[in-house]
Design a binder for these strands. Structure first.
Lengths: 193, 193
DNA sequence: GTCTATATCTAGATAGAC
DNA sequence: GTCTATCTAGATATAGAC
């Protein structure tokens, strides 16, 4: 089932979570995946290729665990879905940790690497729009600009909280509480405006 | 006036802003500073030493430009000071960009480097407490836990917005608007609670 | 204190056997 | 497809002259 390529990409996600994108060494990846470096270069062109495919792999995996809720037994209300999208990213499970770490690395790398910016901007935009859409479902009377601004703040806050959590400055529970309160605050604001 | 060490550290700040902490190469630093690599190793033990001193240098520089306002002609109201502390970090000047970049790098590196976490946690705590104190001056009736939570959210949001700005996903003006609105929203919340 | 030249070391990448 | 062995490049760090 899981092909060799997939096995290597899963290992790469673990190594990135441990060492970061820029700390990933091909030799360590080979060890983690239980294969030789030679095999890695058989499956991927070069280190950059490994990175690109891993980021892609992680991205599709994130969509999967976000989407998984939609297909579950009982459909969620917009409000529940909003909480899911924002708060599911603050979970201390290996997969979420790997994804958050990789996202943070991607963000940090993009500061110095123009090539990465495009991918990142596209993914961010989609995410912001998703959140804005959900906010609009929860508060149908709120103006579009307000929804967009709230979505930008909430997603940016999530990134900030996520980094603090990953860098050990915040417990996951505290981060979730802060995030949940922020959602309340933004919704209250949208209700008033 | 500016010693050789300082000259090298200033150059290091510029290189870090351009390449990141992990992208800093000693040879490029030497070129930027207009000295030889040998001289750099005369002044600093090794690459890690350069990094540590540069981060320290940047940190003290950031305190200086934040504190500079306090000693200016007219004393600021707590509210003005609050805006200054939070919004001064969103400025497109070389120095602020260098500091923000370095801070983002420090945060991102700390995810993988336990040694950096302590410094970072200490600096973050001081910053959060400073903001909480200012919020308390603006809204004296607000409870301490509320002040702390608001300060944590505002500083985490600032980090998130700053990273988006640096990675090209947000204009500086838009980031400032979002930040300014967040301050309003948090103050409104503190007033109600 | 400062430079030039160079040794050393690490990590990415390839060749060739199986 | 997969491994072992190895080449190579890039970057850190040192030696020694001035």
């Amino acid at each position: 089932m899981a092909s060799r390529s997939t096995q290597i990409l899963e290992a790469a996600a673990r190594v990135i979570a441990r060492r970061g994108v820029r700390g990933l060494r091909v030799e360590e990846l080979a060890e983690e995946a239980g294969v030789s470096t030679g095999l890695i270069y058989y499956h991927f062109k070069d280190r950059t290729g490994i990175l690109r495919h891993t980021l892609e792999f992680i991205n599709s995996r994130a969509e999967r665990y976000t989407a998984a809720q939609d297909e579950a037994a009982e459909p969620l209300t917009p409000r529940e879905e909003l909480d899911q999208v924002l708060i599911l990213e603050l979970q201390d499970t290996p997969e979420v940790r790997e994804n958050s770490t990789a996202w943070g690395e991607l963000r940090a790398s993009a500061v110095f690497d123009p090539v990465l910016r495009e991918d990142l901007a596209r993914a961010t935009l989609a995410w912001v729009q998703e959140v804005a859409g959900l906010l609009g479902q929860v508060e149908p009377l709120a103006p579009a600009v307000g929804l967009a601004a709230s979505a930008e703040r909430l997603t940016a806050l999530l990134e900030g909280l996520s980094m603090r959590w990953l860098s050990g400055g915040l417990t996951i529970d505290h981060a979730r509480t802060l995030m949940a309160d922020a959602v309340e605050v933004e919704l209250a604001r949208l209700r008033q405006a």
